[in-house]
């Protein structure tokens, strides 16, 4: 079958699959993605703006020396790492349950994990706004059980932003940990048990170390998504919490400083590329090991 397809390809138009079929997609990506990014990288200083023309280095210098902007870069990374760590803590037990104990219910658990991803991120985030509002469900409940005397302002702060991000991103963590857990040979755990390890020790010495690859992959995916998240932070952070994507948005819509925005987006892109490189290294190392 494959051979036939290959031979067909070499004979030209009679082939079922031809490399030219991806031409449209490739062209689309080159025109609307690759060229703008390259342009952005090379010509930060030549964008036509209302502001004065300045060399690109000025904006990078400003970003990495001005304590205010440096703080925002640090905040962005801190927020992403924090969200990722919370996702690991919440996601790991779910992944373990999914792989080891869900049995015939595992299909349902996976559905429950993926279903929220099918609705718009804006819808899900607005859901949290309703729950967290000053007279929302959570405050009403806390007032009703007399836990608090007056409504707490959950919204427009780091707490609600982190909760919103974790909610959106935890399925990615669960799925990447679960896929690695599923590949662990149960006989390895049985070997540990027969050698005298309790269930807990077996988890600590065998299951957990062998699932680190899954945590690594999940970490990079969730970190990247949190790093670039915009809608959730805009709707739940309420301007209190500033990150690079929000700042870029601000530079475009309010300050009209396109050049600075472009510089910041390059920094964000560099972080993303760095992370992807790390992931590639992780996969390569695994390939050599296996």
């Amino acid at each position: 079958m494959t051979d036939q397809v290959r031979r067909g390809t070499s004979r030209g138009f009679s082939g079922v699959v031809s490399p030219w079929w991806i031409a449209v997609t490739a062209l689309f990506l080159v025109v609307f993605f690759v060229i703008p990014i390259i342009n952005n990288l090379l010509n930060t200083d030549q964008l036509v703006t209302l502001a004065k023309q300045r060399p690109a280095s000025f904006y990078y210098e400003k970003l990495f020396t001005d304590p205010y902007y440096l703080g925002i870069v640090a905040d962005t990374v801190t927020l992403s790492v924090g969200v990722t760590v919370i996702c690991i803590i919440i996601g790991y037990p779910v992944a373990l349950f999914l792989v080891r104990h869900a049995g015939r219910w595992s299909g349902l658990v996976i559905f429950l994990l993926i279903a929220p991803l099918l609705t718009s991120i804006i819808m899900r985030t607005f859901g949290w706004r309703v729950l967290f509002a000053r007279r929302g469900l959570l405050n009403d409940f806390l007032l009703w059980i007399d836990a608090i005397e007056k409504p707490i302002l959950f919204l427009n702060g780091p707490t609600s932003a982190v909760i919103g991000l974790v909610h959106v991103l935890v399925p990615f963590m669960v799925l990447s940990i679960a896929s690695v857990l599923r590949s662990i040979d149960l006989q390895l755990e049985e070997s540990a048990r027969i050698l005298g390890a309790s269930r807990f020790k077996t988890f600590l010495k065998v299951t957990f170390p062998l699932s680190l690859d899954g945590i690594g992959t999940g970490f990079i995916i969730v970190f990247l998504l949190a790093n670039g998240s915009f809608v959730t932070l805009l709707l739940l952070g309420g301007g209190e919490l500033k990150t690079l994507p929000l700042l870029i948005y601000q530079q475009f819509t309010i300050s009209r400083d396109f050049q600075f925005a472009a510089a910041m987006s390059n920094v964000l892109l560099a972080i993303a590329v760095g992370c992807l490189y790390l992931q590639l290294r992780l996969i390569k190392r695994k390939g050599v090991k296996g």
Binding site: Q187, E190, S191, R193, I194, L195, A197, V206, L210
Partner: peptide, 30 residues
């Protein structure tokens, strides 16, 4: 008794060595 309290030794068909440990650590596990 659970498996870890029975004082047994076992060898599996696919060896089942811990891939993340050295030979010494594998043998020393018990």
């Amino acid at each position: 008794l659970p498996p870890n309290k029975r004082g047994l030794g076992m060898v599996f068909q696919n060896y089942s060595l811990f891939p993340h440990m050295t030979v010494a650590d594998n043998v020393a596990f018990g």
